[in-house]
């Protein structure tokens, strides 16, 4: 765990989201300035929160700001500051590794794209496979490539939605190394994996049934304690 110092960069106020009759998020307030891990069981609303923050979805009410940019009123500008890693890779099977990155790089207007791609591919350890099609990649390799895809435009904010799902050991380590080096950026991570989630973060929060039920600094809480609180909170709502 490291000390990170940054102004509050993700601000969520009174955020709610309904799908038809289901309430996915209910009055969520959250501030993230360095690295927060949001724990919660499946269906708690974690993915919905990430989708709203990454401008893929509009909330029913409330507001969210990223680096002082309102994601509702200014989605296009907000997007250029956000990198998203989720359990879906966002990669085309029919394109080569390098082509995938080139395609997304163009969508993000990345300057010196070739150089950037080279260094990122090295970072995730795929330099000898860059000319291969993603269809031939293993799950772990895809996920590593997906990490470099999310970092293409050097985002200020990283949103991670269950990033460890389906990762092999190598990919999980790569991700942790990258996150660890990401000191000057803000990271919001969601997971139901308590051990992995607690490893690098500075703050923790627990989301159950669309509501934030617990917040704490990671330094003040040990793994066992977190586990106890988490199980208690989740059981209350089941």
């Amino acid at each position: 765990m490291k000390n990170r110092r940054k102004p509050k960069i993700i601000e969520i106020k009174g955020l709610s989201k309904n799908f038809g009759l289901t309430t996915a998020l209910n009055q969520v307030n959250l501030k993230v300035d360095n690295f927060l891990t949001l724990f919660g069981p499946n269906g708690a609303g974690k993915t919905t929160l990430i989708r709203i923050l990454s401008t893929l979805m509009k909330p029913s009410s409330g507001e969210a700001k990223i680096n002082n940019i309102d994601v509702l009123n200014n989605p296009v500008r907000a997007r250029s500051q956000i990198g998203v890693i989720s359990h879906e890779t966002h990669l085309y099977d029919g394109l080569k590794a390098e082509e995938n990155l080139k395609f997304y790089g163009k969508l993000y207007n990345v300057k010196n794209l070739d150089k950037r791609i080279n260094s990122l591919i090295k970072k995730v350890g795929l330099e000898h496979r860059e000319k291969d099609r993603v269809a031939d990649f293993s799950r772990g390799m895809r996920q590593r490539l997906s990490i470099s895809r999310a970092l293409l435009h050097d985002p200020l904010v990283l949103l991670l939605d269950e990033p460890y799902t389906g990762l092999d050991q190598h990919a999980a380590e790569t991700l942790e190394q990258i996150l660890d080096k990401f000191e000057d950026r803000t990271i919001l991570q969601t997971t139901h994996n308590l051990e992995r989630g607690l490893k690098l973060c500075c703050q923790v929060a627990i989301l159950v049934d669309g509501e934030i039920v617990y917040k704490a600094n990671a330094e003040e809480i040990g793994f066992e304690e977190l586990k106890q609180i988490y199980n208690q909170k989740v059981q209350q709502n089941e």
Partner: peptide
């Protein structure tokens, strides 16, 4: 269908474009 299967549509939607 090819855009949905691996979340590629979302990938494009995340890019800073209308």
């Amino acid at each position: 269908i090819s855009e949905k299967d691996r979340g590629c549509l979302q990938g494009m939607m995340l890019a800073p474009t209308d």
